[in-house]
C-alpha cells in the first residue's frame, strides 16, 4: 500500500495540475442514453489524478435527487427515454441539462430510426453542449468547470 501511495504521489507531482482559483460546487448526475461507452470512459477519466475533477468541487452523484446537472451521453435510444425523463423529473429545481459528446448533440448519429428517439434537444432543454467523439477529459473538465455552469446553478438557486 505504501508503495502505491508513493507512486500516486509522484504521479501527481508529474501531472503538475494546479489548484483552481475558485472552487465551485456542482453535483453531476450521469445518464447513458445509448452511447458507445467511450464518452463514459472519458468522463470517468476526469476523476483520475491527471485531471482530478473533485479539485474543482465537482462531484458525480449517485442520485438525480442530489444533482444540479443531468449529464447525458449517447444517441438517446427509444428504450432510454422513460428512464431519462424520470431521472430529470426526480431532480430538484433549478436543474440544468448537459449533452456530452456528438451523439447526445445529435451529430453524426448512426442507427435505425425505429430504435432512436433523439436528438436530446427534442426531449429536454439543453443548457450545455460538449462536442467531441468522445470529448477528451480536458474538454469535459473545462466545460464543467469553466462554462459558468456552477455559477448558473448557484444563481438559479
Amino acid at each position: 500500500m505504501f508503495v502505491l501511495l508513493r507512486q500516486l504521489h509522484s504521479d501527481r507531482k508529474t501531472a503538475g495540475i494546479a489548484r483552481p482559483a475558485r472552487r465551485l460546487s456542482l453535483a453531476v448526475r450521469h445518464v447513458d442514453a445509448g452511447s458507445c461507452n467511450a464518452c463514459e470512459h472519458e468522463l470517468g477519466a476526469t476523476a483520475n489524478l491527471f485531471y482530478d475533477l473533485s479539485r474543482h468541487g465537482i462531484t458525480i452523484t449517485a442520485s438525480p435527487r442530489h444533482a444540479d446537472v443531468l449529464l447525458i451521453t449517447g444517441a438517446i435510444t427509444s428504450r432510454m427515454v422513460i428512464p431519462l425523463l424520470s431521472a430529470y423529473q426526480a431532480m430538484p429545481e433549478p436543474r440544468l441539462v448537459a449533452a456530452l459528446g456528438d451523439c447526445a448533440m445529435g451529430l453524426g448519429v448512426l442507427g435505425d430510426h425505429r430504435d432512436l428517439a433523439g436528438p436530446l434537444e427534442h426531449l429536454l432543454p439543453v443548457d450545455v453542449r460538449i462536442p467531441g467523439c468522445p470529448p477528451t477529459p480536458e474538454q469535459i473538465l473545462d466545460a464543467l468547470a469553466s462554462s459558468g455552469l456552477a455559477g448558473r446553478a448557484t444563481t438559479l438557486r
Partner: peptide, 26 residues
Amino acid sequence: NHRGLERAAVGAPLDTGLAIVQRACG
C-alpha cells in the same frame, strides 16, 4: 443501448459499415 446498428448497415456501402461497427463500442 440498442441502436439498431446492424439494421442501419443493411444496404450501406462497406465503408459506412466500418463507421457503424466502430460506434458499436468505444
